[in-house]
Design a protein around this nucleic acid. Sequence first.
DNA 1: TGAATATCTTTACAGTGTAAAGATTATGCG
DNA 2: CGCATAATCTTTACACTGTAAAGATATTCA
Lengths: 209, 209
Amino acid sequence: MNEKKTAERGYHHGDLRDALIRAADDLMAEKGLEGFTLRETARRAGVSPAAPSHHFGGSPGLLTEVAALGYRELARRLVAASETGSPADRLKAQGVAYVRFALDFPGRFHLMFRHDLLVKEQLSLEQATGQAWDALEKTVLAIRGQSEGAELDAEGEAMLIGIWSTAHGFAHLTLDKKLARIAECDSDDDMLENLFPAIIDTLWVKKLG
Amino acid sequence: MNEKKTAERGYHHGDLRDALIRAADDLMAEKGLEGFTLRETARRAGVSPAAPSHHFGGSPGLLTEVAALGYRELARRLVAASETGSPADRLKAQGVAYVRFALDFPGRFHLMFRHDLLVKEQLSLEQATGQAWDALEKTVLAIRGQSEGAELDAEGEAMLIGIWSTAHGFAHLTLDKKLARIAECDSDDDMLENLFPAIIDTLWVKKLG
DNA sequence: TGAATATCTTTACAGTGTAAAGATTATGCG
DNA sequence: CGCATAATCTTTACACTGTAAAGATATTCA
């Protein structure tokens, strides 16, 4: 986990930029987004508190790279979820994958939507978010019978934002334990496996299939 | 805005507890949730940094009261939104009211779903959240044709959590400016007035009405 | 080789939340 | 009423935080 200290590794780290991103990501995986501090991240990388600023300009710069990492992983899962089945089935699978991602990586997920902590102009973030949304858009285009490069029509737009909002809200509410009061699910996994698909069915699939 | 300082008001404040809640709420309305600090809140109330702890035990205790205040306002709006129309119309109106609340009070809204900042056992919070969810549940019971005191059936449960998740996700994504890339709306208000109802229609009303 | 540059450290500063102990006022009881 | 007790607020202090500025060290390239 911990990197070598200055004494054992010499003055220059060699791979500090990536090491800091990994350390920050690990830290958030352990203690959640609110457990993150720049100094602790530096400590774990075996480096002084001011070192990260040279590579990222400051805390938001580093966090943005971690968020980009999260969007890339999310995009990967969204693409994987849309490989089989009818367009409607694929959209449903992407919704499940979205929530699954949030439950697997709560720290990353929360970070990815905290625009007060991120530098939205940072290229890596723009590209990574683009990958994720493109994966959703592609599926909706298929449902609408539009060609791949086309602009979504109005109904498709509502569809995309609808599924996204539903999955996003469900993920947030589950992580915040707000649904326990209503649904009698044992675990978060249970909510994802059973409750969420039921909601999607009630909302979408009956209309589409 | 600022309260009297110690010299002009004497040693005891007289109404410090409420004054601190108001100051914290004001501060968040101005600078957002991340602009809140306990010390600044104390400063605005004209009181020492350690004074709040006596009334609220600490920062989370105070924030919990602000969140409860938010839930009461939300409940008020949800009830008001469900006063006219068919059950399906009322649920839609409640969804719009939910998002409207989030756009009107971003600071409160974000706080209300940050369980890491709140003391969920605090009575005022439990009661206030109960009021809000009851307002939604009542409408869904009417849609399902169940009596007021009954437990929601499975489909009703999916319905309640569905509308809640969708409104919640839409509110979050709008506040985070994530939808700008897809929808060509001018303002957040535009999104609420036009886009969100269109989504609800696509999702719900066609099925219910 | 030597100068320029990139990288990391040291030091310092203005913030933060809150624990502990002291000062002041209000309250309730004889 | 008078006084002990409790409630309320202040002061002081501490361990944190992010980061700006300046110094130390290694790498790179002409």
